[in-house]
Amino acid sequence: MALIRPRTLPSRSPTSSPAAKSSAERPDAMRVLIHNDRPEPLRERLLELVPDVEVGLCDSYDGLVTATQAFEPEVQFHIRFEDKPYPVEAVFDVPGLRWLGVGGVGVDHLGPWDPEAITVTNGAGVASEALAWHVLGSIIALTLKYPLFARRQAEHIWAWQDVGHVWGKTVCVVGLGHIGRDIAKLCNAVGLRVVGTRANPQPTDNVDQVFGPDGLHKALAEADYVAVCTPKVPSTIGLIDGAAFAAMKPGACLIDVSRGGVTLADQLMAALDSGHLAGASLDVFDPEPMPDDHPIWGREDVMITPHSCATFEGWELKALEMFADNLKRLKAGQPLFNVVDPVRGY
Rank of each mutant, 00 (worst) to 15 (best):
G63S: 04
L47Q: 05
E82M: 15
E44K: 06
V55I: 04
V88K: 09
Q76L: 15
L46C: 09
Q76R: 10
P85Y: 12
G96F: 15
S60I: 01
C58K: 00
P87G: 10
L47F: 04
P85I: 11
L47N: 04
E44M: 02
A67C: 07
F77S: 09
L64F: 08
V50T: 06
Y86A: 15
D62R: 10
G96D: 13
A90H: 10
H78Q: 12
L47E: 07
G56I: 03
Y61S: 05
V53D: 03
H78G: 10
E40R: 13
V75W: 08
F77Y: 15
E40M: 07
V65A: 04
R98F: 07
G96Q: 14
R43H: 03
E89L: 12
V91G: 04
H78D: 04
A90I: 09
V53G: 03
P51F: 07
V91I: 15
A67R: 01
P41L: 08
P85Q: 05
C58V: 02
L46N: 08
R98Q: 14
Q76V: 15
L64D: 04
P87N: 11
V94L: 01
F71T: 12
G63A: 07
Q69W: 07
E89C: 14
C58Y: 00
E72W: 05
V88M: 03
R43M: 07
P41Q: 10
L46D: 05
E40Y: 06
V75R: 06
V55T: 03
K84R: 15
L49I: 15
G96H: 13
L97M: 09
R45S: 13
E48V: 08
D62T: 02
D83M: 13
L49W: 05
V53N: 03
R98K: 13
A67V: 12
A70P: 02
E54H: 14
V94H: 00
G63Q: 05
I79A: 06
R43W: 01
E89Q: 13
G56N: 03
D93Q: 15
V91Y: 01
R45N: 13
E74K: 07
F81Q: 11
P51H: 05
S60C: 04
V94D: 00
F92S: 08
E72G: 01
L64T: 10
G96P: 11
H78T: 15
E44Q: 05
F71M: 10
G96W: 14
L97G: 00
F77A: 08
V55K: 01
C58E: 02
D59L: 01
L64M: 11
R43I: 01
E82I: 12
P95H: 10
V53L: 03
